[in-house]
């Protein structure tokens, strides 16, 4: 009796792709393997009985082969969807991507239209969920100007969207030095004028550098504008909360008061 093989991998696009490569390559058969990514807090989920655990070491070469063949054999659209799913906070996304790719390599670029299929539907929904949060943050991110002219921002997104929001700001503010810090994952993206932006990890960073109120005239002006633009006869906190969920507000200038 063959045991179930569970491939445990790093919680990153490359980690998941490496696991997919190795699981595919193993020849155990799709029905007998499963992919399990580390959760964001670095603990694996409950160990399953009657299974062999295989620890996957991220291998960039293998990961690159997977992404190349997705682009070539399925489509660029499918590749982008898979990447967004890999950045989501969904538990079991590694296995979902694996199942999606099995279908994708069989059907080809039309796979993204198979919305009545359970796997494709889940990928579609997660993709929309990550896209939605990314789009929210394009608007809700707030920069504070520090003494040295650097713009800093702190966010606490549910999904790992830092790599999805940064290109927008790099394009928009080419001459600015800015840092966006993800307080949930201790990673940040950095941008300097004329250079490509990068993402760096800071496991032991002191976030107080990013939080707290700065003495900046324009922050006060912004609060004045924000308060005055509302029509008093139409005050509607429920609608406001529906459009701008509370979880975003702790990082937004106009909602902080001394």
């Amino acid at each position: 009796m063959n045991n179930f093989k569970i491939y445990q991998c790093e919680n990153s696009i490359d980690g998941i792709f490496t696991a997919i490569y190795q699981a595919w390559d193993s020849g155990y058969g799709h029905a007998n393997v499963k992919i399990e990514e580390q959760s964001e807090t670095n603990n694996y989920s409950n160990i399953e009985l009657f299974s062999d655990y295989i620890l996957v070491k991220t291998n960039l070469e293998q990961a690159l082969m997977v992404s190349k063949s997705i682009k070539a054999k399925i489509s660029l659209e499918a590749y982008e969807m898979v990447c967004r799913v890999a950045l989501s906070d969904y538990k079991g996304k590694g296995d979902l991507i694996y199942r999606f790719l099995i279908l994708g390599f069989h059907i080809g670029s039309k796979i993204v239209g198979h919305l009545s299929n359970k796997v494709v539907n889940s990928v579609f929904k997660l993709n929309r969920y990550v896209n939605g949060e990314t789009h929210h943050l394009l608007g809700f991110i707030r920069f504070s100007e520090r003494e040295n002219g650097i713009l800093t921002s702190i966010i606490h997104p549910k999904n790992n969207v830092l790599s999805l929001v940064t290109p927008h700001f790099a394009d928009r503010l080419p001459n600015e030095r800015f840092v966006i810090f993800d307080g949930n994952r201790n990673i940040c993206s950095l941008h300097l004028p004329g250079k490509p932006w990068v993402i760096a990890e800071f496991p032991d960073i002191d976030t107080s550098d990013f939080e707290g109120i700065v003495d900046d005239e324009y922050e006060n002006l912004w609060k004045i504008f924000f308060d005055n633009i509302a029509i008093k006869e139409r005050i509607n906190p429920k609608l406001q909360r529906n459009n701008l969920p509370i979880r975003f507000r702790k990082d937004m200038t106009e909602f902080e008061y001394v």
């Binding site: 509302a230 005050i235 406001q240």
Partner: peptide
Amino acid sequence: ICHTFSADGRC
């Protein structure tokens, strides 16, 4: 892009 929503819920 909506940047924030005022107290009347408008973008």
